[in-house]
Simulated scan of single mutants.
Amino acid sequence: MRLILLGPPGAGKGTQSARLEKKFGIPQLSTGDMLRAAVKAGTPVGLKAKAVMESGGLVSDEIVVGIIADRIGEADCAKGFILDGFPRTVAQAKALDAMLKQKGMKLDAVVELVVDEKALVARMENRVKETLAAGGAVRADDNPEAFAKRLTQYREQTAPVSDYYKSVGELRTVDGMAAIDDVTAQLDKVLAK
């Protein structure tokens, strides 16, 4: 199962990815984690990324897709993978499609968790309260102002990715505002098709 999960921050992608990992025995791939691992391992693509990051630049789509290409070639991805947080732009989606085609692979599904943005802010505020009550550490960007910026950035840069996958007939949607178990059930149904 090769899968992309789309949705704004706080939509529940991480929660659902963890459940899908367990169900299908496939890894959830975070581009940030992959980037750090490639840099640490000193792979050719990792060395390129390190040079860009040390100069203060943003890692190019070409480098990120190269890191994903290396990562999905590893043994734990033999049965598939979940991409969460990538692609973030239409250009990245097209580059990913081209790379997968080159490897003789294709995506099994692109699923968007559709949510109400106002409800997401309330969800984020509740998550902060629960985390603090449990004695946990709160993410620096889990405050209303930073969260609003993340939502705006998502809307401007990443939301068009959904339109791209819709235009090529690959987008499936689930109601991300439902209870967690209900979202999981919807995902199971959508992925069974």
Rank of each mutant, 00 (worst) to 15 (best):
R172E: 10
E112T: 04
M53Y: 02
G136F: 06
G176H: 09
L96H: 09
G80W: 00
A148L: 13
A38D: 05
M105F: 11
D141C: 13
I82M: 03
P8F: 01
K166E: 15
S30K: 03
L5C: 06
D84N: 11
L96T: 09
T15N: 03
K106C: 09
L96I: 07
V128Y: 05
D181P: 06
A137G: 15
K23N: 10
A140V: 12
G32I: 07
L171Y: 08
V161N: 00
K149F: 06
V168S: 09
K48I: 03
G25R: 06
D163F: 07
D181K: 11
E62N: 13
V59E: 07
I26E: 00
D181N: 13
G12M: 10
D33N: 10
Q153T: 15
S55Y: 08
A69H: 11
I63P: 02
L47M: 15
G46H: 04
V45D: 05
K23T: 14
V59N: 01
Q153Y: 13
V161P: 04
K23P: 07
P144A: 12
A140M: 15
P8K: 03
A78S: 14
V65M: 08
L113H: 00
A98I: 12
P27A: 12
G7L: 03
L113I: 04
I26N: 01
E145R: 10
T43D: 09
D61Y: 08
E125I: 07
E62A: 15
T152V: 10
E74K: 14
K48E: 11
M105W: 06
Y154G: 03
V174Y: 02
G7S: 05
K166T: 11
K149C: 08
G66I: 03
A69Q: 11
D108C: 08
V114R: 07
G42T: 12
Q92E: 09
L6H: 05
K79M: 01
I4R: 10
V183M: 04
F24A: 02
G80F: 06
A192W: 04
K129C: 03
D175A: 08
Q186C: 04
A122T: 14
T131S: 12
F81V: 03
L120P: 02
D182L: 14
A192G: 09
Y154F: 15
G136W: 05
N126F: 03
D76E: 14
A140Q: 12
D182P: 04
R123I: 01
G10D: 05
P44Y: 10
A98T: 14
L20H: 06
M34H: 01
D61L: 10
K103I: 06
M99S: 14
E112I: 02
K101P: 09
E21T: 12
K106E: 15
G56F: 02
K94Y: 00
V90N: 05
V59I: 13
D97Q: 10
R172L: 12
V64E: 13
D181H: 13
A122Q: 08
G12F: 00
